[in-house]
C-alpha cells in the first residue's frame, strides 16, 4: 500500500492507503474529518469540495478548490488540505461562514461546506464578482434548499467584507 503524507487543517497525517481510496473517504473514514460530506458519485454536486494546495504544503503555494470525491488520497500526498473544519480558529468565523449565516444562505446545510469552500476559491480568482459571476462561478455546487438567491447574496457580502478597506476606497 502506498504511504501518504498529508496536512489537513494544519495537522500532519502519515497513512498507508489503498491506491483507489478517494480523498473524500480518506478524510471522512480515516481521519474523522466528517465536516466534508459526500452528495454524489459523479462529481456533479460539489458537497465534498475542499481546498488543496497546488504545491507541496500550503506555505508559498496556492490552494484551489477540488471535489474530494474525484481526487485520490495518493494525489494529495505531500500537499495541504483545508476543509470546512479548518476555516475558523474556533473563535471567529471566516467571513464567508459569517456571511452565509447573516444572509440565511443555508437550510439543511448539507451542501454548505462545499459551497463555502468553492465560494472562497471563487473570490480568490475574482475578489469582486457580480451576481452573474457568482452564479456562474458556483455552477459546480448544487443546493436543493435555498434556490441560491441567498447564497449569491452571501458570497457578495463576504467579498465586500474580505476586501481591505484601502482596496474598497479605490474601487468605490
Amino acid at each position: 500500500m502506498p504511504r501518504v503524507s498529508v496536512e489537513v487543517d494544519g495537522v500532519e497525517y502519515d497513512d498507508d492507503v489503498e491506491p483507489r481510496l478517494l480523498l473524500a473517504h480518506y478524510l471522512r473514514d480515516r481521519l474523522g474529518k466528517v465536516g466534508t460530506p459526500i452528495g454524489c458519485d459523479t462529481s456533479n454536486c460539489g458537497a465534498c469540495t475542499v481546498l488543496l494546495s497546488t504545491g507541496r504544503r500550503a506555505s508559498g503555494t496556492t490552494s484551489v478548490s477540488v471535489k474530494s470525491c474525484s481526487v485520490l488520497a495518493v494525489q494529495a500526498d505531500g500537499k495541504s488540505v483545508t476543509t470546512i473544519e479548518g476555516l475558523s480558529d474556533g473563535q471567529e468565523l471566516h467571513p464567508m461562514q459569517q456571511a452565509f449565516h447573516e444572509e440565511h444562505a443555508l437550510q439543511c446545510g448539507y451542501c454548505t461546506p462545499g459551497m463555502i469552500m468553492a465560494a472562497i476559491d471563487l473570490l480568490r480568482e475574482n475578489p469582486n464578482p457580480s451576481e452573474e459571476e457568482v452564479r456562474e462561478g458556483l455552477e459546480g455546487n448544487l443546493c436543493r434548499c435555498t434556490g441560491y438567491q441567498n447564497i449569491v447574496r452571501a458570497v457578495r457580502r463576504a467579498a465586500g467584507d474580505m476586501r481591505s478597506p484601502a482596496e474598497e476606497g479605490v474601487t468605490s
Binding site: 460530506p37 476543509t83 449565516h101 448539507y110
Partner: peptide, 19 residues
C-alpha cells in the same frame, strides 16, 4: 432571527447519519 442551527452547519460540526 438568524438561525441557531447554522452554527454547526457552517463549521462542519454537523451530525449526519453517515458520520
Amino acid at each position: 432571527r438568524r438561525r441557531t442551527e447554522d452554527a454547526r452547519l457552517i463549521t462542519g460540526r454537523t451530525n449526519w447519519t453517515d458520520n
